[in-house]
Amino acid sequence: MVVILGTPNADSSEIYAVTCSSGDPTWAGPLAGVALGLPVYHILESEVKQQIDPVLYEQQIGLSEMALDAASIIGAMLRARATPPAAK
């Protein structure tokens, strides 16, 4: 199982990515302190993009790709995947 995010900015991407992998960093929801350990990627990351039909990707995601700050989102995803599991 892989979690794919479509979040609109770096902050939200990092929060949701860490929530699905290491545990809710805000300690607000049911996944606080729960490290699911799931691999998490963003729809704008090349690892995901290269597995999708380019025509379909352009049709569904092209506009968002141009509108969103992809570089900062990808940076946030890299940080999130490097975050160690939260202490229980």
């Binding site: 979040t7 900015n9 509108a67 969103l68």
Partner: peptide, 15 residues
């Protein structure tokens, strides 16, 4: 973590 909703919308229209 919900972002700047209007800003995202405006960038979409601009795109």
């Amino acid at each position: 973590g919900s972002g700047n909703v209007p800003k995202t919308n405006y960038r979409m229209i601009a795109a």
